[in-house]
Write a protein that binds this DNA or RNA. Sequence first.
RNA 1: GGGGUCGUAGUUCAGUUGGUUAGAACGCCUGCCUGUCACGCAGGAAGUCGAGGGUUCGAGUCCCUUCGGCCCCGCCA
Length: 609
Amino acid sequence: MYDLFYLFIFIITFLRISRNKMYFKTRTHTCGELRESNIGENVVLNGWVDTRRDLGGLIFIDLRDRYGITQIVFEPNFSKEAHETASSLRSEFVISIEGKVRKRPEGTENPAISTGQIDVMVNKLIILNEAKTPPFPIKDDIDTSEDVRLKYRYLDLRRPALQQNILMRHKMYQLVRKYFDGNDFVEVETPVLMKSTPEGARDYLVPSRLHKGKFYALPQSPQQYKQLLMVSGLDRYFQIVKCFRDEDLRADRQPEFTQIDVEMSFIDQENIFEMVEGLMNILFREILNQKLSTPLPRLTFDQALEKYGSDKPDLRFNLEMVTLNHVFENTAFKVFQDHIKNKGIITGMVAPGCGDYTRNQLDIITDFVKKLGAGGLIWMRVKDNDLEAPIAKFLTDEEKKNLIQSLKAKPGDLIFILSGSRLKALSIMGSLRLEMARRLDLIKPDTAPKLLWVTDFPLFEWDEQTKRFYAMHHPFTSPRLEDVEYMETDPAKVRARAYDLVLNGTEIAGGSIRIHNADLQAKMFKTLGITEEEAEHKFGFLMNAFKFGAPPHGGIAFGFDRMAMIFAGESSIREVIAFPKTASAVSIMDDAPSTVDENQLKELHIKIR
RNA sequence: GGGGUCGUAGUUCAGUUGGUUAGAACGCCUGCCUGUCACGCAGGAAGUCGAGGGUUCGAGUCCCUUCGGCCCCGCCA
């Protein structure tokens, strides 16, 4: 009975399809597949019309699919009918053809494409779908504004370059899954609708229909769940997971992004490093075709800040910064004097060979640092036995000599000096360091990638506005055990068992060893000014879980999109995300976010104000 | 929230001190063309100069407001 029914449906469908001339044969090959070895074969190809070269009596079509391009040829004396139909073909028409693979005539081969030795003589053409002229050409290296590309993202994704990025990303997913599975990690999905936690980034909220006035939050990361999974005894967890943060966007920041989330039990920092380096080895080999030498270099947070002015230093070029406080210990120069007295810092950097920068160029650079909040920029041209600078007259010969020596400056170089509060002066010089690298073109396309660990982050961060300490990483991060004693006396001095993985000046992963001991966690909350009641209210379930036997544990989370961006050689994360949002968190293609029906709001007990 | 930059044909851009009918290239359309691959040749169509307001005899151009893209600071690991 049912069989008859399905047979009926099948016949109806078949009739409808054939009446619409939609019937076509399954392809025998892809458009990137045919070679000289296929010459003489009858083949079926399906794909898009890439380009059309209509010579009148002879029509060439480049047929494109994800796998490549094959040239197909329409000749009237081979198939008059196909040739006639072919004259109506236009860019991006979807077609199906049958034909015979031929060697191209001597001298007409196209070495630029892998199928360039052959073409396919078509004897049957079916137009599966016509297409409007696309708003931009479907080819690489196009010069089209990004908003147009985003509006027609499905067309943008037809371009080979973007498809390559998506395919590379796919390969990364597979390598990651295989690696962690091979190391006994369990992939677990954690909830997307969860409890809002006020610490950290702003949450995306989801109103509850069933519970008036209550909200879920989308996860900023599955942090607490993965720690609970350790309490559950899963021992090794990973997940490739979407995370959400309602903060302003950047070239490397989207409101929704993907993490590789990892957590392990009964381990210390070194075990995490080893596991991560194993993964990076594989990714470097399989994606970049490069051998990564491990163990990776490490810098402490303090070292990174002093030498590179950043907690995510780009080590692809040198331009190291040098702290100069010792040079100016007894200086008569008032600005330096004050900063030394106020526990500030004087930091210097040499711009090699830039001694010929004009006053105008130096003004532009001064303006650059001023925009970042610097009071001013001190510059000095290094001469054969002297320094030429506006402030030179305030310095003793001894100071000049020590300065040149400390910076290892040479005649013809330019010296930059910034002074001020430690964190600010160093990070502004760090920005100037990156700016000078751009100006001096120190990062070439073939410059080797540089991967390193940054360790020993401060546990706390002082916030001037609210006059309290915040957890730099998150409130479950363990202090270094030898620093626990300072938690009450001098919190700023406490270093965390936290670490970042930095690739080419971009943070691609960050993690920590967690607190698994209730007493230490209580101490942590106390330093953060979180009362017991607050802690109970915000993190009670986690605290409670820890009372039932929490193993020592720690983990790390990778910014998957950023990693993909760098591997793909792109400078925006949007180039490796299929459907990204603009800098104002809008999706131009589908017009999200959008207004909703008043009834929807009513159901959710929400009123717009 | 702040700073920078851009917005002119489908696309990428030019457009002088405010001056007649806003141009180019590519793309698109029509015709011709049997070995092209950036096909070629001939012809053609195509504009809310982001939007709104103002100054002016006259605004793509000057002024104000506003919207949008991109980058950066703040924010965010």
